[in-house]
């Protein structure tokens, strides 16, 4: 026991003198930095919107670029008459359902093929062939199959998400450290233990990465589906505005999509922080 005591002693000595750090200075300089960054961001935004407003008309034809004030007015109208609520709901519903279905199936198939190398080798060329196809090109087919309603959008979004999640899951399961699996086997772990204690946590980062990159793609799938043929959704509103040469409406739709996509991505960032809390380097 004495040997270990000496080791602890060393640590106690190291921790003994209360070190005094100037925490206040550190914090205030951080706060100052943040304020500077935020300040400049605001300046940039105001300058851009201001320049847009000022040049639209005297310099550039508002038919093409509209004006920030017209866009804001349009957004306000849409918010009040329920356009945003109705169509955004449709788009988000298709996005979410596509994301969940594609994600679940992608993780499932990724795990299955990852744990069955022989089957994976057999189907590999076919998966690569389908993967190589630009998935949005499937939109017309899905509309043919499932009609212009919600289903075709969900299927398109799910297909796109599936491949992204599947590939990441598969790679993650294949990348599991064999040595860690052996550790669990020597402890008497069953296949289920190996899956739960090694494969799942080890591939969690990969799976999460797949899910993360597929969030905007789920939205793309839904919107592309709506653009192709639909009667609802922000994609539908966007296409309708464009068809009636309503530039303000087009920009207003784009603003909605941008805000939605940003919120979705931000949610993913927070989720990732939680899942990956064991990594010492914060992202």
């Amino acid at each position: 026991m004495s040997v270990i005591d000496s080791d602890q002693g060393a640590r106690r000595v190291a921790a003994a003198p209360e070190e005094v750090w100037d925490e206040k200075a550190l914090q205030s300089s951080q706060r100052k930095n943040l304020l500077t960054v935020m300040g400049w961001r605001a300046v940039l935004l105001v300058a851009f919107v201001g320049a847009w407003q000022a040049t639209s008309g005297p310099v550039i034809d508002p038919f093409y670029v509209s004006t920030p004030s017209d866009i804001a007015t349009r957004l306000w109208e849409w918010l009040r008459d329920g356009t945003v609520a109705t169509h955004l709901y449709a788009t988000l519903q298709a996005t979410l359902m596509g994301f969940v279905i594609g994600g679940v199936v992608g993780i499932g198939v990724g795990f299955f093929l990852g744990r069955s190398p022989l089957v994976a080798r057999v189907v590999d060329p076919y998966i690569i062939a389908i993967y190589s196809l630009p998935k949005v090109a499937l939109a017309p087919l899905f509309i043919l199959w499932f009609g212009i309603g919600m289903t075709s959008k969900v299927v398109l979004a799910a297909t796109i998400v599936f491949f992204l999640v599947f590939y990441n899951t598969y790679a993650g399961v294949r990348a599991v450290d064999r040595d860690l699996v052996d550790v669990v086997r020597l402890m008497g772990g069953t296949r289920r233990d190996i899956l739960r204690r090694v494969v799942l946590p080890s591939s969690a980062t990969w799976i999460f990465n797949g899910l993360k990159i597929s969030v905007p793609y789920a939205l793309i799938g839904a919107v592309v589906g709506e653009l192709t043929a639909s009667d609802r959704g922000i994609g539908f509103v966007l296409k309708r505005a464009s068809g009636t040469f309503d530039t303000a409406g087009v920009f207003a739709s784009l603003v909605i999509l941008m805000v939605v996509a940003t919120i979705l991505n931000q949610m993913v960032v927070y989720g990732e922080r939680y899942v990956d809390r064991w990594r010492s380097t914060p992202t």
Partner: peptide, 12 residues
Amino acid sequence: GYITQKDNLMPW
């Protein structure tokens, strides 16, 4: 009990 060269701890 097998103590390998690599420490093989579960990082999570």
